[in-house]
Design a protein around this nucleic acid. Structure first.
Lengths: 129, 129
DNA sequence: TCTCTAATTTGACAGATATCTATGCACGAG
DNA sequence: CTCGTGCATAGATATCTGTCAAATTAGAGA
């Protein structure tokens, strides 16, 4: 109990980096990493963009036309376009124009990186390496 | 500096089952789910809060005192307090006062849920269908 | 060419957010 | 009880964000 009373000030705890993208729970994020990662989460920190991402990912062929996406919302086309731009600038999706339509698909590696960062504290509980 | 000892702690372990919510890529999110999930990502969509979460998760004992956290930033105490409140209201962390100090620890199950949602687009990445 | 449709860009505006200073509250020590 | 410290809240403000209407760009077809 007395142990918990003491303010063991030891913030500089740098637990030897080893893994390429260590989960949040394994090693403290430095300022640079946090600054780089936060915009990724900001990009999906919106209900519309979360659904857009999901709709694109689940769409047949792994890609979706803007017209497919727009009809799923009660929002105007410019607004959908804006959200797609945010997702694209974050690197979460990419797009290509084919004739009249523009198609979007997700970038799985970025999503995987984000997932890994949040991955279970379980790794900490029992992982050897 | 060569701290190798891992703080293998048991932080209120209650890892959510993986099957609780389908990944983004398996099934389109409906509006209600998106509205519920977006705030979780919004909570970590900030460099300061990402680092706070990481610092707390990595801290010895799985919990950290506010005083430990404040010194890691060039921000005032009220600002840190504000960010901790945002994280807590999102359900990502919890806290308790013990004597003079207030301690924060992360809620692994919420983090696990978020990770699972973004989890491997692998299904999608390899499906030419 | 001219016109129609798909999608983006621009400009504007209400609402949210990050930060600070000043203040208040809850402890523990005298 | 009084004082000092750790932390939270309140209020103020500058900036960012989501949305729409209007204008613009790009391609298809007559």
């Amino acid at each position: 109990m007395s142990k918990q009373e003491l303010p063991i000030v030891d913030v500089g705890v740098q637990v030897a980096a080893e893994a390429c993208c260590a989960p949040l729970v394994c090693e403290p994020l430095d300022e640079a990493e946090a600054t780089e990662l936060a915009p990724l989460f900001k990009a999906i920190a919106d209900p519309v963009r979360l659904r857009l991402l999901s709709l694109i990912a689940c769409h047949e062929g792994g890609e979706a036309c803007v017209c497919d996406l727009t009809v799923a919302f009660d929002l105007t086309a410019p607004t959908i376009s804006h959200h797609l731009k945010v997702l694209k600038q974050a690197g979460l999706i990419d797009s290509e124009r084919r004739g009249t339509w523009v198609y979007y698909w997700i970038n799985p590696s970025v999503l995987a990186r984000m997932s890994a960062l949040l991955s279970p504290a379980s790794a900490l509980a029992g992982t050897p390496a």
